[in-house]
Design a protein around this nucleic acid. Sequence first.
DNA 1: TGTTTGACAAGCA
DNA 2: CTGCTTGCCAAAC
Length: 109
Amino acid sequence: MPNLFLKNSVEISVFEKAVYTALLEVPKGKVITYGDLASNAGFFGASRAVGNALKRNPFAPKIPCHRVVKSNGEVGGFAYGVRRKIEILRSENIEIKDGKIINFSKVKI
DNA sequence: TGTTTGACAAGCA
DNA sequence: CTGCTTGCCAAAC
C-alpha cells in the first residue's frame, strides 16, 4: 500500500488525502458532485468510495464536506444529517428546494 | 483473502 | 417523473 500519511496522529490513505485536497479547491458558494470530486482526486469512477471517505472523515469541520452533492442535483448525505447539510449550504447562498439544488448547473463546478 | 457495504452514477422501462 | 438494474471503487468485515 503506497499510502499512510500522518495528520494529527490519524492515518490517512492516499485516496482520502487526494479527496480532501481536491475538495479544498471548491470555493464557497459552489458545489461539486461525488463523481467529479473522485475524478479531480485522480480516481475516476470512485464516486461511491468518495462518499465513504467523507463519511468516516476523521476531522469533521475542517473539510467542506457539505459542498459535495449528487450528480442529479440532490443534496446527498451528510454525517451530521442532511438537514444540517442543507442549512450550511444555504448559509453559503446555495438555494435548495425539496432536497434539490436550484440552478444546479450554475453552482456546480 | 473473499464478501459486504455505502453520503454514488448512468441507463432503461 | 418514478422505480429498478447494473457498474463502480476503496474500506471494513
